[in-house]
Amino acid sequence: MDVRLVPCGGAIAGAPCPSTVLSWDGDALTASADGESVRVRPASLYHYFYDQVMEAPDSGSSTQLVTGLAALDADGLVMLDLPANWQPSQVRDFAMQAGLPLVDGEREPGPKVRSLLSGRAPGWRRLHGLGAPRPARWRMPLIYGAGLAGLVLMVYLVSAGLGTAWRGLATVGMLLIDLIQVKWLMVAFSPMLLAVGPIRAGLRRRRARMGAIAGPPVGPNLSITAAGGLHIDQGREKLPDIAIGHADGGVASLLLYQHEGLSGLFVMDGRNQPLHHIPGPWSPDDLHRFTERNRLGLAVHRITRQEYLALLRACRHASP
């Protein structure tokens, strides 16, 4: 019996529809997308929904719904995560034909869904089904050529005492960019953007060496706010800061764990209970400098499956 399922849209509204194809051959679940294929034998399927608060351009915030399908093992750990908009009736039919129990998470609280999705089984995979965009060959030379031309023009106008003319030209350029949606033209009107990436990376490394931040270069990152709270930087996603201290709900320490090829971080309170789970790679050296500077405890442990499950089930918040 060969049963198939495909998504009907992206994981968030307006996102491209993934090319993922999910199939069941009577023995295992196979997900294929962009030349990749993952085969698992799950105990159940989880159709999930949760809200994500994002920063808005006007310094406010907006909420977007994230949807997907996850294959779970017998302990409820995620073996395979497939972010996409899966049509509920088709998911139910697929699960019924495959003989797999289906958990509908549509009415479950967002924090519970996020915590469940952060629990990863050994060999965990996430397939987005969206191939990496490949820019046309001519685009990068044109970008750098435009940037160089813009830099020469800026130097000439400023040296000729025509700085006002440059600012006016840059303003017109930015207006054109917004109108015609050709974002790479921004390089021509802001030549310094060519150096922003390396400069930002250098400043980030310096802050990490000082213990001001901790986390992978691509995020998420930890930092301390001016008010003295722990801030989890997750790109454009806005997560509430966590107070530091031994009072109920306050951050007292961090637990960096390794478990069956998995790694991640638990933010712990004064009673050694988990407050927030962030799976993924973390540098022990960065965390040591960060916790030492901010007077937090740090534990680094290789934990058992039972300890991992206990921490997951006690943790109410997570970054999947």
Score class of each variant (00 low, 15 high):
84 A>Q: 01
143 I>Q: 12
298 L>R: 05
122 P>V: 08
169 L>R: 01
271 R>I: 00
202 G>I: 03
134 R>D: 01
141 P>G: 07
185 L>E: 01
105 G>D: 09
119 G>A: 13
226 A>M: 13
115 S>Y: 02
27 D>G: 05
38 V>E: 12
218 V>N: 14
30 T>F: 12
69 L>W: 02
127 L>D: 04
256 L>S: 09
125 R>K: 15
289 R>M: 10
236 R>Q: 08
11 A>W: 02
41 R>L: 08
268 M>T: 09
128 H>S: 14
190 S>R: 13
247 A>K: 11
150 G>K: 08
320 P>Q: 05
196 V>E: 14
43 A>E: 12
286 D>Y: 08
101 P>T: 12
105 G>T: 09
87 Q>F: 03
80 L>A: 09
206 R>F: 14
77 L>R: 14
48 Y>K: 03
139 R>S: 00
162 L>T: 02
250 G>W: 00
178 D>H: 12
261 G>N: 11
5 L>A: 04
94 F>K: 03
14 G>E: 14
207 R>G: 00
152 V>W: 10
250 G>Q: 02
90 Q>M: 06
117 L>S: 10
179 L>R: 14
316 R>Q: 15
185 L>G: 04
164 T>E: 13
26 G>V: 10
157 L>E: 09
270 G>C: 06
33 A>F: 01
69 L>F: 03
233 D>Y: 00
207 R>H: 08
298 L>A: 08
51 D>R: 15
147 G>Q: 03
153 L>R: 06
39 R>K: 13
317 H>L: 10
235 G>Y: 04
34 D>N: 15
285 D>A: 15
58 D>S: 06
49 F>W: 15
218 V>W: 12
230 L>S: 03
120 R>G: 00
16 P>Y: 06
281 P>K: 09
308 Y>D: 05
144 Y>F: 13
284 P>F: 06
64 Q>V: 13
310 A>Q: 15
288 H>G: 09
26 G>C: 07
94 F>Q: 04
224 I>K: 06
261 G>P: 10
99 G>E: 02
86 W>S: 02
83 P>G: 07
146 A>C: 15
76 G>H: 06
79 M>A: 13
278 I>A: 10
212 A>T: 02
28 A>K: 08
85 N>E: 14
320 P>D: 10
273 Q>D: 07
205 R>F: 05
276 H>N: 05
183 K>Q: 08
125 R>N: 11
15 A>P: 01
167 R>H: 14
187 V>E: 06
189 F>K: 00
143 I>W: 07
180 I>T: 09
20 T>Q: 10
38 V>D: 03
152 V>G: 12
198 P>W: 04
60 G>E: 02
188 A>I: 01
91 V>T: 08
61 S>Y: 10
254 L>S: 04
307 E>Q: 15
244 I>E: 06
33 A>L: 01
287 L>T: 03
64 Q>K: 13
189 F>Y: 11
23 S>C: 07
180 I>D: 15
309 L>R: 11
288 H>M: 08
97 Q>C: 11
269 D>N: 13
31 A>F: 05
102 L>W: 02
147 G>T: 11
291 T>S: 11
47 H>K: 06
